[in-house]
Nucleic acid binder design. Structure first.
Lengths: 122, 122
DNA sequence: CAGCTATATTACCAAACGGTAATATAAGAG
DNA sequence: CTCTTATATTACCGTTTGGTAATATAGCTG
């Protein structure tokens, strides 16, 4: 049983897990848009986009205004900060492995140089 | 129909959307663990954890060794880098809003100082 | 070999997801 | 008031997800 209200991070990451929703956010980074403007490029029905918007709204990533007969959607990036923080706690781990990879590459390069003379760096 | 292979980011974000899986990653940040060591703290059945591990593995966030009769799980943070990059593209948006908040806070502080004298900074 | 331990796999279930078509509602325009 | 446009809601469907219990497999150990 897992009936407790989902944590914000759950919803943020879940929202980001869908490429359509990421694309919507990318579009909104260029400025507000109406729902129809968001429907156009996606080859999805309008209700589908409205659903995605509801998910994004539930994650706090998007908010809506009331402008005449249209309801413009705008990006709200604040929740991304918490997500970035969470991921950031692991930065040292991927940097470690990059370091290791880097070291490994260096070893390889040294070997190759010893065996085959100069080798061009990619 | 959406049958194309899911992109790595999809799977990474989807994997991160579950708190149990985030907790597993947190545990692995402290070092390798066997499956049973991961089962213990979570009040979930062993198959449930194995399933979560499969999801994490599918996202490339975890890899497994073969050490005698146990199969130690270790963190592989590399995919988090791409996720961090993706989110990072939106940093300016949340910093913008933070700036606004910050400005607002400054206004408040000024008001309070005017009204109530010196105020300690957190 | 037999038995124990660690892990994976299977079968099953309820709930959530991602989509559609059809319909309802809201609000400006004539 | 009626028409039209923009958006939301409903009803429905197949697939995926997160969990379980039961069972199978792998590999030490006696």
């Amino acid at each position: 049983m897992h009936s407790a209200a989902p944590q914000p991070l759950d919803r943020v990451f879940a929202a980001l897990a869908d490429p359509t929703r990421r694309a919507i956010l990318a579009r909104l980074a260029a400025g507000e848009a109406t729902v129809n403007e968001l429907v156009a490029p996606f080859d999805l029905s309008q209700p589908a986009i409205s659903k995605h918007l509801k998910v994004l709204e539930g994650a706090g990533l998007v908010s809506r205004g009331r402008s005449a007969q249209t309801r413009p959607v705008r990006l709200n990036a604040a929740p991304l900060e918490r997500a970035a923080q969470w991921i950031g706690d692991y930065r040292r781990f991927w940097e470690e492995s990059l370091d290791q990879l880097d070291a490994y590459v260096k070893v390889l390069n040294r070997k190759e140089m010893r065996h085959a003379g100069k080798r061009r760096r990619k």
